[in-house]
Design a protein around this nucleic acid. Structure first.
Lengths: 244, 244
DNA sequence: GGCACGTTTCGGCGGCCGCCGAAACGTGCG
DNA sequence: CGCACGTTTCGGCGGCCGCCGAAACGTGCC
């Protein structure tokens, strides 16, 4: 449990901002949450190796994050699978990442490769980010699918365009159709919300995009290149560098 | 500066989530940011007294928050005025507060009074929150000013209704007209975005609401009661308890 | 049943960080 | 000009917390 007294749900209870922030104020726990932004479930051991700490350390951190409700866990045999608790949690971590100061680039050839791959194209929980994500946002804007006055909104053309791509929107949710999400590599917004999620899942499902490393990084396939350049008008340079 | 190396803006720089979280992971700094959510500028001494720490301690905390870009400061004579750096910063703190665990209610008669006042009605940087904020959100929804399918949006009726109230919307911003903001006392959304800000500033300007304590808490005046009940149909119970 | 492996618990170490008080600085006011 | 007051700097204290390794636990596999 946290350092404060047991959480109360009664009247007058006020948010313990420091308690939440403390959970993410540690390099290791922050690394866990950032890794989990790929939306998949990781085992405790995978996260420990990823963050470069002993399994015992990772175990304690995970317990804290799960108890606080940031992560959800599923025990399967001798594995402990863990993922972000909800879309809201993912959005919070996204928002904080965008506001966070930028750390020095990683050292080591492998790490630099991974970092560059993430900068070219990645998923941000359930939508696209990186140079690719921003280019797609620009493209759909140029096509008139999304208008930006008074906040981002989906146009009628956008609705038919998405349908033509085979990207289905959920019906009657409270979730915003289009949400602007500040990209931390490009420092410009990309498309989140139901539309961003539909585009991304359709692209992965149709094989326009693949995840080479199994992580957050995405790569554009040959078919993807045709579709994204043809239908959306995404510039060739971006597709090239985000391609094979 | 932060514990990590100097922030880089070059390629491959990745967000230091832990560094940002560390800033808010302290009770005192968190209390500062929460207090500053009223949108006004506070002096260092006021914040120190508010958080119950020595002025020297507050000074150091403020330096850290300003250096990190979370707060903006204005030096005036022997006073150091400090406020949240931007609307984005305020929204981040709001979002984190909504996700944070709830601490035990405060002790002491005065603190309980303040806490109850906040729960009845308060500002959330530039819009309304608390029981009053949620009631207003419900009312404008019932009036058909705001629709919630596929995320909150302003209807045509809403536009004319706002104009009739004298609440002016800014022209052509990238800011969303309506944004949903989870209320931490009511656990239900209230209205943020340009519409929420316009409603709140109009209400304060017209004297429908006043800030009795000079903090975030707001109180409904007699005229306010007439307008909010008459035009918006806000229930009388809420207006009564949020009134004088 | 026994081994391997992923995970957990516990003790102990080390470092970081928030706190204060004392003293100094600068500004505004009388 | 000198005092009062808001603020800052610095040293030092204390506590918290993240880390590891060793040992134990439980599961799956041979």
């Amino acid at each position: 449990m946290l350092t404060t007294t047991r959480p109360t749900t009664g009247e007058g209870a006020q948010p313990d901002l420091a308690a939440l922030a403390s959970l993410l104020a540690d390099r290791t726990r922050a690394a866990f949450c950032t890794a989990l932004l790929d939306g998949r479930a990781w085992t405790a051991g995978e996260l420990a190796r990823h963050a470069g700490v002993a399994p015992s350390t990772a175990s304690e951190h995970l317990t804290a994050l799960v108890e606080a409700g940031l992560l959800a866990e599923v025990r399967q045999g001798r594995h402990r699978y863990v993922r972000l608790a909800s879309r809201e949690t993912a959005e919070l971590i996204e928002a904080m990442s965008a506001a966070a100061p930028k750390a020095a680039p990683p050292r080591g050839l492998r790490a630099v490769h991974r970092s560059n791959a993430l900068a070219r194209g990645r998923t941000c929980y359930d939508h696209l980010a990186g140079a690719l994500g921003v280019a797609v946002a620009d493209a759909v804007t140029r096509q008139g699918w999304i208008a930006w006055e008074d906040g981002p909104s989906l146009t009628a053309e956008g609705r038919t365009g998405l349908a033509a791509l085979g990207a289905e929107l959920p019906a009657r949710t409270r979730r915003p159709l289009v949400r602007s999400c500040l990209d931390w590599t490009e420092r410009r917004p990309h498309v989140a919300g139901a539309v961003g999620a539909a585009l991304c899942s359709r692209a992965l499902e149709a094989g326009w995009l693949v995840r080479p490393g199994g992580g957050r990084a995405v790569r554009v396939t040959a078919e993807g290149r045709t579709v994204l350049a043809g239908t959306l008008g995404v510039p060739d340079e971006v597709l090239e560098s985000a391609g094979a």
